[in-house]
Amino acid sequence: MNTTSLPKPNSMEFDIHAKLKAANSHWSYCYAVHPHDKGFDYQFNTTFVGEMEFAVYERIENYFVLVDFFKSYDEACDDAKKIIDDHPDIKKMFSVS
């Protein structure tokens, strides 16, 4: 697993496909919605293998599609930050005491 942080492009449009490929990441680009996901528009997933990593998925019809994966809030793309900001219970996970 690649443990280095990838730089976030400043002037280019964010491309999750390029980030997945560059990181040789384990995250899936999308997965099917299951019956227990009824009513949910987002999934926030975490892994902890050596260090914590997060992924935000957005529901598009019958699939959850990867918005971004990151190790800290600052590394997240703008779309992922907006989703996190709209959910205070998730946002507080990134707050430093």
Rank of each mutant, 00 (worst) to 15 (best):
N10L: 11
A18L: 03
K8Q: 07
M1N: 09
A18Q: 10
A22W: 07
S25A: 15
Y29S: 08
L20I: 12
Y31D: 00
P7F: 02
F14I: 10
L6T: 08
Y29L: 15
T3A: 01
D15Q: 10
Y29E: 15
T4E: 13
M1G: 15
D15E: 11
I16K: 06
N2V: 15
M12R: 05
I16T: 09
N24E: 12
T4H: 09
A22I: 12
H26V: 09
Y31R: 00
P9S: 12
S5Y: 11
F14R: 05
A32N: 11
A18I: 01
A18M: 01
K21F: 13
P9E: 06
S28M: 09
A22D: 15
A23M: 08
M12Q: 10
H17G: 10
K19W: 15
F14V: 04
L6K: 08
T3F: 02
Y29D: 12
Y31T: 00
A22E: 14
H26A: 11
I16P: 03
N10F: 11
E13T: 15
C30A: 13
K21V: 06
F14W: 12
N24F: 00
K8W: 01
N24G: 04
L20Q: 10
W27F: 06
D15A: 05
S11D: 09
N2Y: 14
A22C: 05
K21L: 13
N24L: 01
Y29R: 13
S28P: 02
L20H: 05
N10E: 09
H17T: 05
S11N: 07
K19F: 14
W27A: 01
W27G: 03
D15C: 07
A18R: 04
K21P: 04
M12D: 10
N2E: 11
S11F: 04
W27D: 02
K19C: 06
H17V: 04
W27Y: 07
L20G: 05
L6S: 06
Y29I: 12
I16E: 10
A18H: 05
F14N: 05
F14M: 03
T3C: 00
H17A: 09
T3K: 06
M12W: 08
K19V: 07
P9I: 01
S11C: 03
A18Y: 11
Y29K: 11
C30P: 00
A23F: 11
N10H: 06
A18C: 01
C30M: 10
Y29W: 13
A22M: 14
I16C: 11
N10D: 04
P7L: 12
A23R: 03
Y31L: 00
A23H: 06
W27I: 00
Y29A: 05
N2L: 14
M12A: 06
T3W: 04
P7C: 01
N2A: 14
S5P: 02
K8T: 01
K19R: 09
L6M: 14
N10T: 12
P7S: 07
M1W: 10
A32H: 05
T4I: 15
D15R: 01
K19M: 08
K19H: 09
Y31V: 00
N2P: 02
D15K: 05
I16H: 07
T3L: 08
K8L: 13
Y31E: 02
W27E: 06
C30H: 07
M12V: 09
T3D: 03
A32P: 02
C30V: 01
M1F: 10
A32K: 07
P9Q: 03
P7Q: 04
A23Q: 14
L6P: 02
W27L: 02
T4P: 01
F14Y: 15
E13V: 10
C30E: 15
